[in-house]
Write a protein that binds this DNA or RNA. Structure first.
Lengths: 198, 198
DNA sequence: TCATTTCTGGACTCGTTCGTCCATAACGCT
DNA sequence: AGCGTTATGGACGAACGAGTCCAGAAATGA
């Protein structure tokens, strides 16, 4: 019984994500987002409240989508668990290297810029990292059950290590390390994971 | 034959570093820096040129000091090379955990915020990472000579892996991962390095 | 002491950006 | 069709921040 919105909220969030992602929070202007989405500022503020709230929505969204994507990549039966892990690690290296704009990951970028001063961002990042760790742990446990990884180290520890390597690959990528080196890191990381005693 | 400066340039750089470090580049105001250092804006601009140039000076300085510090930590004879490596890895984990403000490393933070749009920052970060990698490689090679690490993997690859883990620890620390987990990652990383076949 | 040169610091300018406001448009319901 | 409600979008206000400018201070050398 009132005028309906003409824009798709999700589409606006996606566009805003692009802007925040390339420019960072502080360097992105609301006018940019308004122009990029075609919305007037009245609509933008009416729908999302303000810059900070909009970023929170975008960040939340992004974290969720990253966790979802990894979840899909790592989900499956025990027999293929190691193949999935390996594919995932190489995929992160390749994706980081392919990111020629050096935008890195919005999760890392947003956390780096705002976690210190914005509790909501810090908490969301923490939750996302925890979720990623849990996904890796499940997959590594499956590898151990299937005999692809030695069972003498707790899967949680190995998952934390792999997660650190993955985040490290992204950080190095942003610093300009070559694709070859990144792929090497992925390969070496997989190679040093303990083998079953058999 | 002219009035000498009343301030110490290095001290100003240190203060500016603090500001950029906690706030990031965009969120730090020149007025803040002026107030924090006690300088007037005239002096600030006269001595450093502008915000961008000042940040470049600070960033350059910081990268140099990080490389220097690691260099000192890893320098020594072959017999103690593994002990130094181990101490260094634990030290990074402890330092990251102790950084309760979650400022992380200015190298990572600056690179995350500016590398994409500022070639000078990107290049400086790349050079610093390369230097760190070289330092680790030297130490790992020493470990291999002394028989503390297996010689079947090239030291350069192991160094790249260790570097990724170290940067990953910092990234995870910023995301709020606990000290215990960070220390665990350090321990696990050291544990999975190949042992000599003996 | 005086002249010259550089430093100092705060007032000022100007562009920029967040957020507000409001007249108007669009829709659903009766 | 008319009414009430919500969306729209561009103009506007106000604050803020980078960089400039300049009158005066401080030091050195003649």
């Amino acid at each position: 019984m009132a005028r309906p919105r003409k824009f798709d909220e999700q589409r606006v969030l996606d566009t805003a994500r692009e802007r925040f992602w390339s420019g960072g929070y502080a360097a992105t202007r609301m006018d940019d987002i308004a122009e990029a989405t075609g919305l007037g500022k009245g609509s933008l503020y009416g729908a999302f409240g303000g810059k900070r709230e909009l970023f929170h929505r975008v960040f939340d969204d992004y974290c969720g989508s990253v966790v979802d994507a990894v979840s899909r990549q790592l989900d499956g039966n025990d027999a293929d668990a190691y193949a999935r892990l390996s594919a995932h690690v190489y995929a992160v290296a390749a994706a980081t290297a392919a990111d020629t704009d050096r935008r890195g990951c919005l999760l890392a970028k947003g956390a780096a810029e705002l976690a210190e001063h914005d509790e909501a961002v810090a908490e969301r990042a923490r939750a996302a990292i925890e979720a990623l760790q849990a996904l890796l742990e499940d997959d590594i446990a499956a590898c151990q059950r299937h005999g692809d990884i030695g069972a003498d180290v707790e899967p949680g520890r190995l998952a934390a290590l792999v997660l650190a390597v993955l985040r490290g690959i992204e950080a190095l990528g942003k610093a300009g390390v070559s694709e070859e080196t990144l792929t090497d890191i992925a390969r070496t990381a997989l190679a040093v994971l303990p083998r079953p005693a058999d």
